[in-house]
Nucleic acid binder design. Structure first.
Lengths: 297, 297
DNA sequence: TTAATAGGTTCAAAATATTTGAACAATAAA
DNA sequence: TTTATTGTTCAAATATTTTGAACCTATTAA
């Protein structure tokens, strides 16, 4: 016998412990007491372990029984979650959804979107991966990511992958006056700026999510709680990053922040998203729909 | 139906995927193909999810089927581990064993013992808790710990708890010349020295253990890889700690290290261990036996 | 002390569930 | 085209689980 334990047996054990007696457990499970007795005996026999000892007219768990009960409960819970995840997948909602973002883009702009997503569907796990340069492309073909948000011009057309432009507010690459990068040759190369510390707005959706999504970053980062803080941190020269044009127009005019052009002229409004055409997942559809809207931020 | 998934069904699913076909899976499980077909259909029905799609003459997993397979495998493994843990408990080997150590004692001396334990029994989880002052006592009565290693004189006799002295090599509390503590009133109080950073030898058994045991410390610690390093760190004034007398005799004579008496005169050889007499676990017996030997370090 | 009660077990019969093997359909390979 | 492989269906055979009645046993109430 490969698996002497059965989920039904664990369920019986759990009911006995919760209800306090074989008889009460039988009642809860809509069975007759002798059926409970039989189930326990079978489990003890298959496992070759004594699980209950009679004390007075009650049966109490042995140490081995306790171990089986406690860890068994976790297995029951995992099974329940699995059943839900399977059904959800079948209904078109992916249980986990992976987003790859080109490393040149700040994660900032995706967080509000994820926050909104969790408001609607709190039990789906979302992971955000950072991909460098061409890696975002490959993340899709190798199934590492369900959705890629890339910068720059649309890549070479690829069979089975659909691309779509994302229009959003203008983000400007900014550094403090006197920052090292102001001395560098313009436009700045991606390799160059990726060596510096980026300032990002802390993932506000993290606390809100029941199972927190993970962010896998490859760069040194400084997390701040808000865009206002990010502007301050940038002005203090703590790092570099993109900022929404309308928030910093006056600072640029006063010379308190310096806007620098970045290689490939990536004014953020030309970034795109990509996904596999075979993927019909509903989470994917949700994100595509949201990202297609002009006002999503 | 509370649990539509059964372990048997997951096992069938796993075999189908590994062997590549229903027929091969049937062969592996010593059943007839129609039995496999039946099992899959039943699972699909109970779960109300399509798991296989026919492609040519083969059946391939749907996305939902893949989710069920992959997470199902983890459940199968967990169940297997649970069966082993239960049997082990029944045979007298505790699946987890908790040791509480008085915070005045260095963990150093217990690590080699744990290393030796893992050589014999690598699949038992051992946790080491630090307890301050009287906490070690209570750790036993409240079942937080299976074995307590305490310092100082034997505590008041307590029903159901057995105490035994531990004889071991002499450990001397040591600081660097010029250390702040050399100015303090002697003997040093425990409260006083516990405010300083302790230097401990890094837990060498950690890497060796398959499921690493955890150490829960409440003090600032500096971990070093060996006793030799510990002596060096102590001499440099990086922290304080106990050292084996025979290793530092010459350093004390040359004045390169200072020995300081500690309150309650705890020369380590008078420390004791304690456990519940009702506990007949074999791991406990092993540790008692080892700690009873004079030469255990 | 003696009922009465609650909890657990045993056993044969009944009800369910699973496995089998033979027949069949569909596809890929020879 | 033939052959081999794969999966399905179905009724019969087999195995497992549930049932209910009878029967212990230890506590509690009278």
């Amino acid at each position: 016998m490969k698996y002497p334990i059965t989920l039904d047996a664990l369920e019986v054990l759990d009911a006995i412990d919760r209800k306090g007696s074989f008889a009460a457990a039988a009642n809860e499970l809509f069975r007759v007491p002798s059926a409970i007795s039989y189930a326990v005996q079978k489990l003890e026999q298959d496992l070759d372990v004594v699980l209950f000892r009679k004390e007075g007219r009650k049966a109490v768990l042995t140490p081995a029984g306790k171990v089986l009960l406690e860890q068994g409960r976790e297995i029951l819970q995992a099974t329940e979650r699995l059943a839900m995840a399977t059904k959800k997948t079948h209904s078109g909602w992916e249980p986990v959804f992976n987003i790859a973002i080109d490393s040149i883009l700040d994660f900032d702009f995706i967080y509000p979107l994820i926050a909104r997503f969790y408001e609607v569907l709190p039990d789906i796990e979302i992971n955000i991966y950072e991909e460098v340069l061409g890696g975002a492309q490959e993340a899709i073909t190798s199934n590492r990511a369900d959705l890629v948000i890339g910068a720059g011009t649309e890549p070479t057309p690829n069979q089975g992958i659909k691309y779509q432009k994302i229009r959003q507010i203008e983000w400007i690459f900014t550094v403090a006056p006197g920052h090292q990068l102001t001395q560098a040759a313009l436009p700045l190369s991606r390799q160059l700026i990726e060596q510096h510390r980026f300032i990002v707005v802390r993932d506000s959706s993290r606390n809100q999510a029941p199972q927190s999504h993970r962010v896998f970053s490859k760069r040194p980062l400084l997390s701040v709680p808000s865009v206002a803080e990010k502007i301050n941190a940038l002005r203090s020269g703590l790092g570099i990053g993109f900022l929404p044009a309308h928030r910093i127009q006056h600072l640029l005019e006063q010379g308190l922040l310096i806007a620098l052009p970045v290689e490939n002229a990536i004014p953020m409004e030309t970034c795109h998203m990509a996904w596999k055409t075979t993927n019909k997942g509903k989470v994917l559809c949700w994100f595509i729909e949201q990202l297609s809207r002009h006002d999503f931020i």
